[in-house]
Write a protein that binds this DNA or RNA. Sequence first.
DNA 1: CTCCCGATAT
DNA 2: ATATCAGGAG
Length: 210
Amino acid sequence: MSNAKKIISLLAKAYPEPKLALDYANALELLVAVILSAQCTDARVNEVTRTLFRKYRSARAYAQADPAVFEQEIRSTGFYKNKAKAVIGCCNKLVEQFAGKVPRSVAELTTLPGVGRKTANMVLGNAFGIPGIAVDTHVLRVSNRLGLARGEDAEEVEAQLASQVPPEKWTAFSNAMILHGRHVCAARKPLCSECPLAGECAWPDKERTS
DNA sequence: CTCCCGATAT
DNA sequence: ATATCAGGAG
């Protein structure tokens, strides 16, 4: 078994049924939660969406929101002006071009304002069960450290990962990589001594900060 | 490449 | 005090 296959297998064992830490009940809620999650902890997003999801129950509801009010409602997630514009703009387009429903392809999703490949793949995989590898800062970092990919471009890394992981495992793989990046292979203080993948990891000791 | 922005860890 | 954090747009 190749090193990459071993790593992918160990990762799946370490994170059986990896699920997102974001709270959501449907594709629209997940889309909104992922947009709000940029540069923000999942815990804070959940705190905000707990009340937000009770008030806005459809794409139309967000589309009709007062921007100034909405900005304040999501303020604590940071980048609130951009995010408010993204969510409201997104939902306007959903209403006008997608019958108020969240589309099921990367191509369509990325036409929505504020939605890039990472957000699109996150929604596809977790809300629709359509295979997708969401490459965020964690997946980028962990992939490079493990030696599963090389490079800083998210789309290139996504392609490299896609060629090594069978499509039916893309979503679980990317969710596991995110969890691993958050809790073990952290940017600042990676817990290499507790890492189940340490034996197969390509990251040289000299580059470790702790 | 820069800007957006608050919360949290260090 | 300040560096960094579940990105995307201009």
